[in-house]
């Protein structure tokens, strides 16, 4: 647990990232806010991430999810918010931390990966190379939620 406390202190010192434990006395559940990267259909939208820390952390990766039906993305299950990202699974390393994890998810928004689709239709659009349709459809879902 001391490793999480250390992370908590370093994250607190940084102003430009929104990553905080849900309550200050329980570091097992965290929330993060990421901003849609510019020049992507996600621009202008903020997304909430729910992070729960397993007992074996940092030997086991943190479990991270979007809110359900909030993230139209080829590597996110739209219904559940589940994320498919290598570092959250087999490519996890104990030298990664929560900040790095959140930043990687933010990067996933501008760099979707067609090889591991959790959203089948968006996966087809990516494989077909139909970026216009991909972006339009993502914008439709994001706008509809408002």
């Amino acid at each position: 647990m001391s490793r999480l406390i250390k992370e908590y202190k370093t994250i607190n010192a940084q102003d430009d990232i929104l990553l905080f434990p849900e309550t200050a006395d329980n570091l097992n559940n965290w929330t993060a806010m990421i901003t849609g990267p510019p020049n992507t259909p996600y621009e202008g939208h903020d997304f909430k991430l729910y992070i729960s820390i397993p007992d074996a952390y940092p030997n086991s990766p943190p479990m991270v999810k979007f809110h359900r039906e909030a993230m139209p993305h080829v590597n996110v299950n739209y219904e559940t918010g589940e994320i498919c990202l290598d570092i959250l699974k087999g490519e996890w390393s104990p030298v990664y931390n929560l900040l790095y994890t959140v930043q990687s998810i933010e990067r996933l928004l501008s760099e979707p990966n067609a090889d591991s689709p959790l959203n089948l239709e968006l996966g087809i659009l990516m494989r077909e190379g139909d970026k216009t349709a991909y972006d339009s459809l993502v914008r439709y879902y994001l706008q509809r939620q408002k």
Binding site: N119, L120, E121, L122, I124, L125, E128, G129, D130, K131, T132, A133, Y134, S136, L137, R139, Y140, Q143, R144
Partner: peptide, 20 residues
């Protein structure tokens, strides 16, 4: 305007229909 979805391919059209 967001309700207008433009597609560059027919495969894209059908994928959008299925998604929606």
């Amino acid at each position: 305007i967001y309700k207008i979805i433009h597609c560059n391919t027919m495969a894209g059209v059908w994928a959008c229909v299925k998604s929606l």
